[in-house]
Amino acid sequence: MEISSERIDDIPLIVEWLKQMEIAKCIDQKLREPHGNHKGLSYGQLSVLLLTYIITQSDHRLSAVEPWVQTHRTILELSTGWSIGEKDASDDRLARVVEELGLQSQARLEIEVKLGRHLIRAYELPTVVARADTTSFSVNHQQGESPEESLLHHGYSKDFRPDLLQYRQLLATLDPMGMPLVSATLEGNGADDPLYFPTWQQMVKVIGHKNFVFIADCKAGSIATRATIAANRGIYCVPVPTRFATPPISEAMGTLPTSRNCGDSFTAT
């Protein structure tokens, strides 16, 4: 008799959560079919294995997933109900999944909408308040041969390290639990201001209606952003710096021909 033992840890719990979220179903419905010679687990199933590894191990290296799957193969098969082959979770196959998600931007957005709607409906989550924000991450990395194709650029550094390349991350969440609704990885040298209205539009698609309070920081307080959201019957709550404050009515109506922005206040001339 051969007896083998495996550590269960939180693997069954994570897998069950991912199954209830219908991660595999959403991905398989939206991504194009794998190559005809592809055998084994689907893109959605491989995504579940990858996410389970990332969550349980706090590690995102693709090369480390295959030995981890082999170590926990029995509990993974029992938890998922899938037959997992020896090379199903190789770094080549996982890289293909990540590549497909990266290349098919429209499919990725549709997955985001479908997944968000499913979670809101399944758990009857309140959809009264949602918020969005961006931040930057500095990295020790050398610029590649084609910097125009890279997300890593020198920009305004919130880490006070202008010497480092950086990228920006946008995240919109649903209050009060903080469930992600919209996310995007962006170039490090762009402006945040133009992102807020497209983010609000995507949040509307996920939530399914416009009757929620959109909360953001002062970078969403420009007149153009607020006016566009209001024109689309949205509700917002943002801190408005004086330099973004609404100009006097007479000036807005064109009675006064020009205005001068003095520091953080509008001064008519």
Rank of each mutant, 00 (worst) to 15 (best):
114 K>Y: 09
249 I>G: 13
77 E>V: 02
182 V>E: 02
102 G>S: 11
250 S>M: 10
60 H>K: 06
49 L>Q: 05
25 K>M: 13
80 T>G: 09
167 Y>T: 09
254 G>L: 04
97 V>G: 01
248 P>N: 11
123 Y>H: 14
215 I>C: 08
66 E>K: 09
196 Y>I: 05
222 S>I: 01
263 G>K: 07
241 P>S: 11
116 G>E: 05
201 Q>A: 08
165 L>W: 02
75 I>C: 12
244 F>A: 09
85 G>V: 02
97 V>L: 13
42 S>I: 08
81 G>Y: 11
252 A>R: 15
73 R>S: 10
124 E>W: 12
170 L>P: 05
234 G>F: 02
242 T>W: 12
247 P>Q: 07
121 R>V: 15
203 M>C: 02
21 M>N: 12
51 L>W: 07
203 M>S: 01
97 V>W: 02
162 P>W: 01
3 I>S: 02
84 I>M: 07
119 L>P: 08
69 V>F: 03
175 D>R: 00
1 M>D: 08
134 T>M: 03
183 S>N: 13
101 L>R: 03
18 L>R: 00
150 S>N: 06
245 A>Y: 06
118 H>F: 14
195 L>K: 00
23 I>P: 04
243 R>P: 10
138 S>M: 04
28 D>A: 09
99 E>M: 11
139 V>A: 07
95 A>Q: 04
219 K>L: 05
252 A>F: 14
237 C>P: 09
151 L>N: 10
59 D>A: 02
147 P>A: 08
31 L>G: 00
223 I>H: 05
257 P>I: 10
129 V>C: 04
158 K>P: 09
234 G>W: 01
174 L>D: 00
133 D>L: 03
88 D>F: 10
179 M>G: 03
269 T>M: 13
237 C>V: 14
75 I>H: 08
64 A>C: 09
43 Y>G: 07
36 G>K: 14
38 H>F: 07
43 Y>H: 14
